[in-house]
Design a protein around this nucleic acid. Structure first.
Length: 877
RNA sequence: GGGCGGUUAGCUCAGCCGGUUAGAGUGCUUGCGUGACAUGCAAGAGGUCACUGGUUCGAUUCCAGUACCGCCCACCA
């Protein structure tokens, strides 16, 4: 057999992924009678390139999908991408800019054409990257949020929400990004603290003694002031309510009003009121019927209402204005002040509160059933603690601003009659006004928030609004896996829309995975550009190593700070597995059976019974942990078992037997056990397991491990005694090895004799060959009456005393030192145990089994202690 | 201002619905080219489980408080 010593992942990955696709193993049949298991992918942005967050989430989804598929479920993992309105428009705009063009110059229609071109060219990049990750998605069902079908779903939902009165249009103050030149929903604004100033500005009174001083972080907004507000209970200002002050620079007269919103303690206790540029002031303005003066152009330059500052950028204006106020002696004070400012989540520009016509969805009534569904556990959050976050937001939900002033997206399906101004909202594009019959209709220029279509994803992708077989088979989906950062954006909205339009929850379980952060603990985001490239990692370490690393680090409720050393470590694990396979395969050259036999119990050695028992335990643990989303646990259990039990002990123990009478039995067992291991590992490491499985001479009911059956328990193979017995063997071996190592006895040097002070029967005697094999010892003598030879080392394991005669090679000083160290450890333990058992309370109150256990422990330790003392004494005569 | 999470080996992190010899990877020390694997094998050093109290026979684990770190939400100009 000619197999390289080290595992080379890349050719293997390519080969098997192609094989899986060609054989349609990812395809889900909606007509299958098997129990369905379905997941819809959180659709990555078409602009996206696979980052670590994707890698993690999709690895976890693939683990679940492959696990369930092997368990025999009719498994659908539905993939797709999101058109990502603002993000994609930004990308294409940037590209245009390099050609010296703006989208305005190009015009709407041509620009959208450009975006589609871009999408066709680059939009599948992330899909290809997901394939490199090994994702077993049903690519025949790949969807895009602007597909014809999905657009139909969007249209249906918008129109029915409108018809039911849940959608309305309003002239309202919204978050406005001056760079993207669109409105943003509240949750699309990220607040960050910046260091700025708090400026104290004097507004002079009509009479000399009636001035007020206001404090502001955004002095330029004063140009839009239409009042000054004070708290009606504030004694300092009470007398001014109803009087007028003069707005500096512009000279506008402002009424002083009383409003409870104003905090007496903060600043000067007097607030400038700018209804057009501050959400609070907007509300105050409504209460007091104040004029709204817009001072900004959509790009945040100052408009004609800004008087002398017209045309300036908002920050130039601020600077100039402060200088002017200083000159006029109206800037009373300027202090350093840090405060939270909203930034656009797409381009990081500071947003402005801005008045404009926007479309909204009334959320309160839609949210109610969605809250109930989670309370009733029809949707289960994992970990459960995220429920609280969900409830918190849902119970305080505000109306959702769904219109965006961009071009890329689902254009709002509302037409306005140019004659009578009536709006038309129809499922089919209208051709004439229903009121006046005019055919001069213009469609609303805005498009819908990207998240509007995302909210429909679990059913729009399955064929809604048509009543498809896919929908009846796969909806509700089984699991949704995502990061907590989009619980509000996406998860909550899907639950609401699913309940409203499908009358059922969109998924039964939501697994909220950890967030992978960068070195500074900042989250990696699509726009911030601080992403680490998983493809680079795949190139260097292989997909399986990356997947296994992510799985073993996927602890519930804690963020992941990924380190490269860690990945390297798990690449070693791939290599270990690969080499175990090489070892097994090179001993199967003469193996001819088409189907390996499970050997009869009487043919099994202790090691065989032990490994079968352990394997059964591992099957149970891995299965249970995967069912409960404990990815790290199941991965860790597999790692420890395969490396430190199967390879370190089992394979080593059976080596000599491969040349003996039991060769056939051992071969059967190797195939049986190793196939089981490969199956358990397959969801985590799909490529290497397929590669090995295809080489292993197993009996194949199917042609790929990915559709082979998931292991189940074989109770008649379980022999719990074998575990205890193997423990003894391992401890004896380790004890002798420790002495060998400390005495600097070369591995090649054979030990002559081991004297064991016990009866020549029992487990140790029956399996003494294991000990001689692993410790390179020639002969063992069992003698209950043995006395310690002068030049020898002592080993005490579970009450059994052993001597290792070491004439000529022993360093007695070292042995004495070793025994003394052990003695002091034992003495410490002894003291603690005695104290514990002397405690009346412990003996009476602790459970009996614990007390018994401690008593047994004490006995053992006393025996060991005595033996150690005796042994040590032998050095002093 | 509310809410949540973290603090365990030099580093990156598991674990603990109370009783274990507190683990892994990596790094470190020592020995070893051993017929699967040097991406390895064997042995070892390294931890008052952040601090202070409480509950308990018993706390790294449960509770409270403190300190530091981080996240989310919130209209304080």
């Amino acid at each position: 057999m000619n197999i390289p010593k080290a595992y080379e992942p890349h050719a293997v990955e390519k080969k098997w992924y192609q094989y899986w696709e060609e054989n349609n193993y990812f395809y889900a049949d909606a007509h299958s009678s098997k129990k369905p298991f379905s997941i819809v992918i959180p659709p990555p942005n078409v602009t996206g390139s696979l980052h670590m967050g994707h890698a993690l989430n999709n690895t976890l989804q693939d683990i679940l999908t492959r696990f369930k598929r092997m368990q025999g479920y009719n498994t659908l993992w539905l993939p797709g991408t999101d058109h990502a309105g603002i993000a994609t428009q930004n990308v294409v705009e940037k590209q245009l800019l390099q050609e010296g063009l703006t989208r305005q110059e190009l015009g709407r229609e041509k620009f959208i054409q450009k975006v589609w071109e871009w999408k066709r060219q680059y939009g599948d990049l992330i899909i290809e990257q997901l394939k490199r990750l090994g994702a077993s998605c049903d690519w025949s069902r790949t969807r895009f949020t602007m597909d014809e079908g999905l657009s139909k779903a969007v249209r249906e939902v918008f129109v029915s929400l409108y018809e039911q009165g849940f959608i309305y249009r309003d002239y309202y103050i919204v978050n406005w990004c001056p760079r993207c030149q669109t409105a943003l929903a509240d949750i699309e604004v990220e607040y960050r603290t910046i260091n700025g100033h708090l400026d104290y500005i004097k507004y002079e009174g009509v009479n000399d003694d009636q001035f007020v001083i206001v404090a502001t972080t955004r002095p330029e907004t004063m140009l839009g002031d239409t009042a000054v507000a004070v708290n009606p209970d504030d004694k300092r200002y009470k007398h001014l309510i109803g009087k007028e002050v003069i707005l500096p620079i512009l000279g506008r007269r402002l009424k002083v009003i009383g409003d409870n919103f104003v905090e007496i303690e903060f600043g000067t206790g007097a607030v400038k009121v700018t209804p057009a540029h501050d959400p609070n002031d907007f509300e105050i303005g409504k209460r007091h019927n104040l004029q709204q003066i817009n001072i900004l152009n959509p790009d945040a330059t100052m408009n004609e209402n800004a008087g002398p500052y017209q045309g300036l950028d908002r920050y130039e204006c601020r600077k100039k204005l402060i200088e002017d106020l200083k000159t006029q002696g109206l800037l009373i004070k300027r202090e350093d002040y840090s405060y939270a400012v909203g930034h656009c989540y797409r381009c990081d520009t500071i947003v402005e509160p801005y008045l404009s016509n926007q479309w909204f969805v009334k959320m309160k009534d839609i949210a109610k059933p969605a809250i109930e569904a989670v309370k009733a556990k029809r949707v289960e959050f994992i970990p459960e603690s995220w429920e609280k976050t969900y409830f918190e937001w849902m119970e305080n939900i505000k109306d959702w601003c769904i219109s965006r002033q961009i071009w890329w997206g689902h254009q709002i399906p509302v037409w306005y009659c140019q004659k009578c101004k009536a709006p038309l909202v129809e499922r089919q594009n209208p051709t004439k006004c229903l009121k006046c019959g005019s055919n001069e209709l213009t469609q609303d220029q805005d498009v819908l928030d990207t998240w509007f279509s995302s909210a429909l994803w679990p059913f729009s992708t399955l064929g809604y609004p048509d009543k498809t077989k896919d929908l009846t088979t796969f909806y509700p989906t089984s699991v949704l896996s995502t990061g907590f950062d989009i619980i509000f954006f996406w998860v909550a909205r899907m639950i609401m829309m699913g309940l409203k339009f499908m009358e059922d929850v969109p998924f039964k379980q939501v697994y909220i995975h950890a967030l992978i952060r960068d070195a500074d603990g900042q989250k990696m985001s699509k726009s911030a550009g601080n992403v680490i490239d998983p493809l680079d990692v795949i190139d260097r370490y292989g997909t399986d190593a990356l997947r296994f690393t992510l799985a073993i680090m996927a602890v519930q409720g804690r963020d992941i700070l990924l380190s490269e050393e860690r990945i390297e470590g798990y690449r070693h694990f791939c290599n270990k597995l690969y080499n175990a396979a090489r070892f097994i395969l090179m001993n199967l050259d003469d193996y001819l059976d088409a189907k390996s036999q499970i050997p009869h119990v009487r043919d099994l050695s202790l090691a065989d019974r032990w490994i079968l028992t352990r394997l059964n335990q591992v099957v149970e643990q891995v299965t249970n942990n995967l069912e409960s989303f404990y990815f790290n646990e199941s991965a860790q259990i597999l790692y420890d078992f395969i490396w430190h039990e199967y390879c370190d002990w089992y394979l080593e123990l059976l080596k000599p037997e491969l040349g003996g009478k039991r060769r056939k039995v051992i071969q059967d067992l190797l195939i049986l056990t190793f196939e089981l291991i490969l199956k358990l590992l397959h969801p985590f490491m799909p490529f290497i397991t397929e590669e090995i499985w295809q080489k292993l001479p197993v009996y194949r009911e199917v042609n790929s491990i990915m559709i082979a059956s998931w292991p189940t328990l074989t109770p008649n193979q379980i022999d719990l005694d074998s575990i205890k017995d193997m423990e003894l063997i391992k401890e004896v071996v380790t004890g002798i090895r420790t002495i060998r190592s400390e005495m600097r006895i070369a591995p090649k040097q054979k030990l002559k004799t081991l004297i064991i002070k016990s009866t020549p029967s029992g487990i140790l005697k029956e399996n003494i060959d294991y000990v001689t094999l692993l410790t390179n010892t020639n002969e063992v003598i069992f003698n209950p009456k043995a006395t310690k030879p002068d030049t020898s080392a002592t080993i005490i394991v579970k009450g059994i005393e052993m001597y290792l005669p070491l004439e000529g090679i022993v360093d007695l000083g070292k042995e004495e030192e070793r025994l003394s160290k052990e003695l002091s450890k034992v003495e410490k333990e002894l003291t603690l145990l005695r104290l514990k058992l002397a405690n009346e309370d412990f003996v009476t109150k602790a459970p009996d089994e614990i007390v018994t256990k401690e008593r047994q422990k004490l006995e053992e330790i006393i025996a060991k202690h005595d033996k150690l003392i005796k042994s040590l004494k032998s050095y002093f005569h």
